[in-house]
Structure formats: C-alpha cells, structure tokens
C-alpha cells in the first residue's frame, strides 16, 4: 500500500465517474437556478487563494508578542480574532487552547472533519484520515510519537474531539531564543500542524 492510500483508503468511483457525476449535479443545479454562473469557482477559490494557515499563524504570532491580546484570545477566541479582521464560516465559535510546559493540546474530529476553516483553511488529508480520527483519542502519545513529537509523561495530553459548532485551534509554545524576531518572522515559523497540536514550533 502506498503512503497516499493510507491517507485516503481506496476509491469507490473512478476519476471519470466522479467527474461526470459532479458535472451532472452542477449542470442540473444550474438549470434549476440553485447554482449561479461562477458561484462554485468563487467559493472554492476562497480556500485556494485567500484563506489558509497563514491566517492562523498571524494570530499565533500576535498572541506571542501581545500578552493582552493573548489573554483575550484564550478567553474568547472568536471575538479576539475579529479584532484582527478575521471572519468566515467554520470560525465564528473559535476556542484557542494554550500549550504549556505541563499541557499539550491536540485537536481532532472523530465523527467527520470539523476544523477552523476561517483560521486554517480546509483540513489537510491527514486530519481527515481514518487513522488520525480513530487513533488519536485512544493512543494520542503513540500517534504523536510516530509523527516525531515525543510528549514526555510529565506533560498531560488533552485531546479535543470537535463534535459541536465550536472550532478549536492550538496556541503552540513560542520557541526559545526568538526574542529578536518580529511578528511577521514569528508567523513564518508557525505551521498548520502546530496549530492542531501534532507538532511544536521550532526555529
């Protein structure tokens, strides 16, 4: 089995079938006035061009340099990111979880793929994979270790299963010896994986 098959096990439809069935749906929905010319491209384009993990990274870097903002972000994530002009579906009810020396948070959606789109864009395939969804709640330390993140037993692991309208994002620890870096440089260090909790931020 190739690595990609592990990520998305199997395909029920051929590429041709998937293409034709999607096109049949789109065609009928245009004819019936449900879709409109350009609407599908407009919506998909938002996540291809404008909304992605760089937005979340900007929020994290801002929280690292501004303790008052960080306090507001942890108290009410949705309201705090609006201060920075960040809005969007799948982001209104944002909860930000702080990783510390004693606590490591990691986010999953075991039932589907709930994810803070407005901050991180659409979820990557590993987040939607059956392996991640099934395993991280029962063996989080093992999963993280396999991904190269060894969380010592002195650190408590908190796995957040996103089952409601609330959307979760992790505030990773700021790496040591980054005092000289500005906010934009800090943001460049922050990865999508760190904001879900399967990685830490390093320089």
């Amino acid at each position: 089995m190739s690595e990609v098959e592990h990520v998305q096990p199997g395909h029920l439809l051929s590429e041709r079938e998937a293409t034709l069935r999607t096109r049949a749906l789109e065609s009928l929905l245009l004819e019936k006035g449900v879709l409109a010319d350009g609407a599908v491209d407009a919506v998909a384009g938002i996540y291809e061009n404008d909304v992605g993990p760089l937005i979340g990274a900007r929020v994290i870097a801002h929280a690292w340099v501004d303790p008052a903002f960080k306090a507001r972000l942890l108290a009410d994530g949705g309201r705090a990111v609006k201060e920075l002009g960040i809005t969007g579906i799948e982001g209104d009810h944002l909860v930000v979880l702080e990783n510390t020396r004693d606590v490591h948070n990691v986010v999953v959606c075991t039932l589907c793929s709930c994810y803070p789109w407005a901050l991180l864009g659409l979820p990557p395939r590993w987040y939607k994979s059956y392996a991640y969804r099934s395993r991280v709640v029962i063996e989080p330390r093992t999963v993280l270790r396999e991904l190269g993140l060894d969380v010592p037993e002195s650190v408590e692991i908190r796995v957040w299963d996103s089952s409601s309208d609330m959307r979760y994002m992790v505030l990773p620890e700021r790496p040591a010896r980054t005092e000289a870096l500005g906010e934009a440089e800090l943001a460049e260090l922050v990865t999508r994986e760190a904001m879900i909790g399967i990685a830490t931020v390093s320089t």
């Binding site: 690595e3 396999e146 994986e193």
Partner: peptide
Amino acid sequence: QDMGGTHGFGPVVVEKDEAV
C-alpha cells in the same frame, strides 16, 4: 463515521505541500 477508538487504520501520514 463513528470511528473513535477503532483499530487497524495504520499510520497517520502527513503529506508535504498537499494541494487544497
């Protein structure tokens, strides 16, 4: 869909630079 705690799905594979 209800797969929390199910065994047998193999390793989690994180892809680099995957397309949206």
